[in-house]
Design a protein around this nucleic acid. Sequence first.
DNA 1: ATGCCGAGAGCACTGAGTTCCCTCGCGGGC
DNA 2: GCCCGCGAGGGAACTCAGTGCTCTCGGCAT
Lengths: 233, 233
Amino acid sequence: MKTEAAAAKPPMRDALVAAAFQLFLERGYEQTTVDDIVALAGVGRRSFFRYFPSKEDVVFPDHERCLADMKAYLVNSADDDEPVRRVCDAARLVLRMYAENPTFSVQRYRLTKKVPGLRAYELSVVWRYERALAEYLRARFAGRRDGTLQADVIAAAVVAAHNNALRSWLRSDGQGDASATVDHALGYVQSAFGTAPAPPRGELPEDVVVVVSRRDAPLWRVVQEIESALGRG
Amino acid sequence: MKTEAAAAKPPMRDALVAAAFQLFLERGYEQTTVDDIVALAGVGRRSFFRYFPSKEDVVFPDHERCLADMKAYLVNSADDDEPVRRVCDAARLVLRMYAENPTFSVQRYRLTKKVPGLRAYELSVVWRYERALAEYLRARFAGRRDGTLQADVIAAAVVAAHNNALRSWLRSDGQGDASATVDHALGYVQSAFGTAPAPPRGELPEDVVVVVSRRDAPLWRVVQEIESALGRG
DNA sequence: ATGCCGAGAGCACTGAGTTCCCTCGCGGGC
DNA sequence: GCCCGCGAGGGAACTCAGTGCTCTCGGCAT
């Protein structure tokens, strides 16, 4: 018995994360060695790498599970629901994970903003989410011309919109409504790429719509006008 | 004098890249140590890190210059040219760099596809391009509602389209027309977000256009129809 | 010549990640 | 009860990337 080492029943993984963040916050990421972390947690060095394949992983302890959740969510999609909406909803799963622990998420955000190595690592994490979304869309767009192109572009746009909203929420220290922010951002992407829920406004003639626009207007403005004309905005 | 060491006049940076790729191709990236590379190049270990901050950097020897070119290109933009078109053109700079050395680019592509560490590093390289594009768009969209959101999403879409086309070209071993592929991919993004060149087709009535569309069609299809109706596609 | 300077060589050190082996506790078969 | 296996953890030793430091050499100006 190491006096106090194996105290926590849940597992020592959590103890390692806690010890790591305590040191990262008071001393900085690069100034903290893995030996420091395991010393504080009272475990052996080898055990750290049992739970985290690298030092960076301890900063993103729950993304592996979240990615698995997202993949499961996409696999369980019905064949008749709108693909773009579906990937937007999948992205909301990630936001939900961040929103579950606001203080932890904000601390991590400050860390990743400062440390270039963590930014790079975060990119590879985000990339895996993006690939999961893109793979789903590629399958759904299998028949289309330029299906993989559209899948990749839409997945990237969804991730970018999600991250834009997420970071703006994180910058505000977790104040404000994260869901609303992300809904708004994803709405922009859906307006550009998706077919929207199309609430049937009965007074429009079915299957036909007429749009009038200045010819030199920027195309995104034209799109906005069309959206409102279609009752999709 | 080390018999044959300091042979190359241009500089030894190129010799290091050549030695590195020779070993990477015949032995694999992870199986090659920095000591192996400098031994083959006949230079001292410390000199390697003079030219390349990390082992990964030797795989992307020209991206630093290319990123600088892109930033310069964006800074030299006129205030009255269309932002989305401008970032698409900036992305083409990257393609041009790849197309200058097709065999090198294909070798590197095979390498990055196999080695997870290199994929991760490539992400951080791509991220810097994306940030450059996004910063430019943020400045151009400064007044707009959701300007930064649109900037981030469009930058991500441009990068995704560019990479989709680039990778398809690389997968074909550098056969085929890289420019045409990338033009097509970027055209899709411009159709979703940009205003197109608008070649004045005189026979349309000025300032007014009429569009007919199925109400449940995906929005991007509506956009395509509008573009062709406007003579912009 | 002398003194400066920049490029490179060599060396020692830190710290991440891995390999291999040891210990301990626990349950299950005999 | 005893032994055996087994899985979780501890810990030494190793490889290798990356950094800091010093020394040297070759040019160049004063």
